[in-house]
């Protein structure tokens, strides 16, 4: 990497070396980046979608975050009727809280004292984006996708999550039209907490199933 010398202008007039930050365009451009750009241009040129629709969709995707899923889990922890509806139809339950879960049907899978659920997409990288945002890179990796179905307990242990020998580990492979959201167990010591505080205990990884909900004070 090249370096350059420049003045900082913060009073003392000192000069020192910084590596220059490459601009976005200085990174190597991959095949799929080129194909994505080209497809977008063709769809816009042919009037299938407008540039503004494409922009809006990217903006919407980027606005999704685990806080939405966490709100649903916290409500389910305090409201058994809501939990029933969440387990039956996540999209409908989300709409009750004014959360847009998108058009793809999502099913919640409940962790209990007997069963621990974990999600993977062995064929690609299907993920409940509308409720927990874009997937982390590891979720899309070949290692996670192949090993989670083959040796789930070893993968979970690498995330620091040890599942007891008397529990069932249930791996959900989202191969088709559904997406899955794990409903983690409500942690001990959270009995007196309100919904907002409870939502803070529900991290992204606990809704994928590679971690448990945080304990209060953790």
């Amino acid at each position: 990497m090249s370096t350059e010398t420049h003045g900082h202008g913060h009073g003392d007039g000192h000069r020192h070396e910084h590596p220059s930050q490459p601009d976005l365009e200085d990174q190597p451009v991959g095949y799929y980046q080129v194909m994505t750009e080209a497809l977008g241009e063709v769809l816009i040129d042919k009037g299938v979608i407008t540039a503004d629709e494409l922009r809006q969709q990217v903006e919407w995707q980027d606005s999704r975050a685990p806080v939405f899923g966490a709100k649903l889990i916290a409500r389910a922890w305090v409201d058994p009727d809501f939990k029933e509806r969440l387990l039956e139809d996540v999209n409908g339950a989300a709409a009750e809280l004014d959360i847009d879960a998108g058009d793809i049907p999502i099913r919640a899978v409940e962790n209990t004292g007997q069963v621990h659920n974990v999600i993977v997409c062995t064929l690609c990288s299907c993920y409940p984006r509308s409720l927990i945002g874009l997937p982390p890179d590891w979720y899309k990796s070949r290692a996670y996708r192949s090993r989670t179905v083959r040796e789930p307990r070893a993968v979970l242990a690498e995330f620091g999550t040890e599942i007891g020998d008397d529990m069932e580990v249930r791996v959900h492979d989202s191969t088709a039209d559904l997406r899955y959201l794990v409903m983690p167990m409500r942690p001990a010591g959270s009995e007196d907490m309100g919904e907002d505080e409870l939502a803070d205990l529900v991290g992204r990884d606990s809704m994928i199933g590679v971690a448990l909900a945080r304990s209060p004070g953790e």
Binding site: E151, P152, R153, M167, E168, V169, D173, A176, D177
Partner: peptide, 15 residues
Amino acid sequence: GYAGQAQDTAVVDIF
């Protein structure tokens, strides 16, 4: 040679 427990399962969506 699955290294986990006998009760472990995988659930897959199949047409």
